[in-house]
Amino acid sequence: MRTVGRVILSMAIVAGLAVAASRAAEEQPAAQSEPNAPSPVVQPPASTVTVTPKDAAPPPSVTIIGASDAHGVLGRDVRSAADEDMGRIVDVIVDRDGHVRAAVIDFGGFLGVGSRKIVVDWNALRFGKIATKKGSITLELTKAQVAAAPEFKEDTPMVVLGASGSLQPLQAIP
């Protein structure tokens, strides 16, 4: 993971140097072939748009997150509080504002056969230490509660299982 951090840092440095070099090139006058010769005046075509430094996009911000501070959740195993296998996270549901609302868990079955997708409230998940890839994700529901939940199907209203009822319904957009 240190290699990824170094690559990201290197890319940020290269991007910053490229922006600085392009700005410096724009600010320097064109070199003349003879020191006292008048510089030729070249008119750009009418359809050409001149980009000035104020029109250029600012360089992106760069944040480096340590490998022990964050980890992806897709494909991660989920366990119950009683350490039962509850499946794995296969999708994350976000609302229109981009806030994480729920997780889709591929539950039951054996080797993908007979499994069904269940939607659980994001607040019903507890994340253990993520220092290793085997960092634990615990669901605050029992296996029986999840087994009784209706199956999630794309593009249909979803039933979200919540441990504490903390998920508020989305408001319909007229």
Rank of each mutant, 00 (worst) to 15 (best):
A46T: 10
E34V: 11
A172E: 12
S10M: 13
G108T: 05
K153T: 12
Q145K: 05
A21S: 08
D83I: 00
I105C: 01
I8S: 10
P174C: 06
I8G: 04
T3I: 08
P44T: 15
P60A: 09
T132G: 08
D97V: 08
L17W: 10
H99Y: 11
T138M: 07
T132P: 01
L170A: 11
G109E: 06
G87S: 03
I130P: 01
R23V: 12
I89H: 00
P174Y: 10
R88S: 05
I130S: 07
I89A: 00
I137Q: 00
I65D: 08
R126D: 02
I13S: 09
M11F: 15
T132L: 10
N123T: 12
V51Q: 13
V94T: 10
I89P: 00
T138L: 04
L9R: 06
P150C: 06
R2Y: 15
V49H: 10
W122D: 05
G109L: 06
T50A: 15
R2H: 13
Q28V: 13
V94L: 13
Q171W: 08
V90A: 09
I118P: 10
Q32E: 12
I89T: 03
A31P: 15
I89Y: 00
A21D: 10
V113F: 07
Q168P: 02
N123I: 12
A67N: 11
F110H: 12
P59D: 12
L170W: 08
T52M: 10
S39Q: 12
V62M: 11
P44Y: 14
A102Q: 05
A18R: 07
Q168H: 07
A124V: 03
M86D: 00
P45L: 05
P29T: 00
M11C: 11
P29D: 02
K143Q: 03
L161K: 03
I65R: 08
S166P: 00
E151T: 07
S115G: 09
E27G: 10
S10P: 13
V159I: 11
A25G: 11
R116P: 01
R79G: 00
S68V: 14
V100T: 07
T50Q: 15
A24N: 09
V49L: 11
A103W: 01
G98P: 01
D97I: 07
I64P: 02
L139H: 00
S68K: 12
I64A: 06
P53F: 06
E151D: 14
D77W: 03
P44M: 15
A57N: 06
M86E: 01
V160A: 01
I173Q: 12
V104A: 05
G109T: 07
E27D: 13
T50R: 15
I89E: 00
A103E: 02
